Simulated scan of single mutants.
Amino acid sequence: MVFDLVAVAFWVMLPAYVPNNIAVLAGGGAPIDGGRTMGGRRLLGDGKTWRGTAVGTLGGVALAQLLNYVEPVVADAIGVPVPAFPLAAAVGLALGAMLGDVGASFVKRRTGRKRGAAFPVVDQLDFVVGALACAALFAPGWFLATFTLPVVAVVVVLTPVLHVATNGIAYVLGLKDEPY
Results as ranks from 00 to 15, higher is better:
residue 58 L to R: 01
residue 141 G to Q: 12
residue 109 R to S: 06
residue 110 R to Y: 11
residue 69 Y to R: 15
residue 115 R to F: 03
residue 77 A to Y: 08
residue 121 V to C: 01
residue 96 G to H: 13
residue 84 A to V: 15
residue 173 L to S: 13
residue 32 I to S: 03
residue 45 G to F: 06
residue 118 A to D: 07
residue 36 R to L: 12
residue 66 L to F: 15
residue 115 R to K: 09
residue 123 D to A: 09
residue 86 P to R: 14
residue 65 Q to H: 13
residue 120 P to G: 07
residue 3 F to M: 09
residue 164 V to W: 04
residue 61 V to Y: 00
residue 136 A to C: 07
residue 134 C to D: 00
residue 6 V to P: 01
residue 4 D to H: 10
residue 156 V to R: 01
residue 68 N to P: 08
residue 57 T to Y: 13
residue 108 K to L: 07
residue 69 Y to M: 11
residue 154 V to I: 15
residue 130 G to F: 07
residue 151 V to H: 01
residue 78 I to H: 03
residue 35 G to K: 08
residue 156 V to M: 13
residue 145 A to F: 00
residue 156 V to T: 11
residue 100 G to F: 14
residue 14 L to I: 03
residue 95 L to I: 04
residue 64 A to W: 10
residue 28 G to D: 03
residue 166 T to Q: 11
residue 12 V to S: 02
residue 70 V to C: 13
residue 112 G to N: 10
residue 160 P to L: 07
residue 71 E to V: 04
residue 48 K to S: 10
residue 37 T to F: 03
residue 135 A to E: 00
residue 16 A to S: 12
residue 119 F to D: 06
residue 120 P to M: 12
residue 89 A to W: 09
residue 43 L to H: 08
residue 177 D to I: 05
residue 100 G to H: 12
residue 49 T to A: 09
residue 68 N to F: 08
residue 151 V to S: 08
residue 13 M to F: 07
residue 101 D to L: 14
residue 103 G to R: 08
residue 159 T to C: 09
residue 108 K to A: 05
residue 121 V to D: 00
residue 154 V to E: 05
residue 9 A to H: 03
residue 169 I to T: 12
residue 126 D to S: 04
residue 157 V to H: 06
residue 122 V to I: 15
residue 121 V to P: 08
residue 152 V to K: 11
residue 140 P to D: 00
residue 26 A to M: 10
